[in-house]
Amino acid sequence: MAFVLISVLFFYGLNVKESVRIFLYSALFSLVYGVTIILFPSKDLMIGQVITIFNYEIFKSVWSAAVILSSRVLLVSFFSLTSFMVLDFEKMMIHFMSQKFVSVKWGYPILIGMNSINLIKNEFERIKINAQMRGLSKKDFPRLFFTLLVFSIKHSERGALSLITRGLSERKYFYFNLVPTVQDKLILVLFLFFYFTLVSVNFLVLN
């Protein structure tokens, strides 16, 4: 399923370099998630056989859950992000809002979020430059995310106020009849099918 989806994405123009970069970011994110599960397992997993991984003793069930769930996060995040690289996300979202599949109260904030990715990326570059110039140590690295978080929250607030002051309402008109292309529909269907398959398999394995 994953192979079919990634083949379709490459067919429709996904760049190899970009997909490798996305994979690395997704891998990092899912690794952090997996480590969190291992370090802070839920009580119902802390039963049964104990195993040793890198001189660290953990319950086998905790290890299995960490591997399965972080794999799922890796696949979902990787395929979501790569799909968005190929989809015309703005047109898809406007179509869903015009057809009332998605409320404007959700759809437009998501659109603002997606269109802000470059802005936030550029701001993070500036934050990193300042951290570098100030000689912040590696242990201070998490502070950069807090600085970025403050910027993101303020930016979101301004975006939200802009929606309000420009009169956003559920009854708004949609001038443009944006019908998703065959490409967009195919990618979306494949992605959703892939996602539900993944969740179902995970559920069956974990239970």
């Binding site: 500036r126 100030r134 912040l136 950069l144 600085t147 403050v150 910027f151």
Partner: peptide, 15 residues
């Protein structure tokens, strides 16, 4: 070591 930056958004220098 010699250079300090002050960008348009001063908050990106707050850690």
């Amino acid at each position: 070591k010699l250079v300090g930056f002050a960008f348009q958004n001063p908050e990106n220098n707050f850690f």
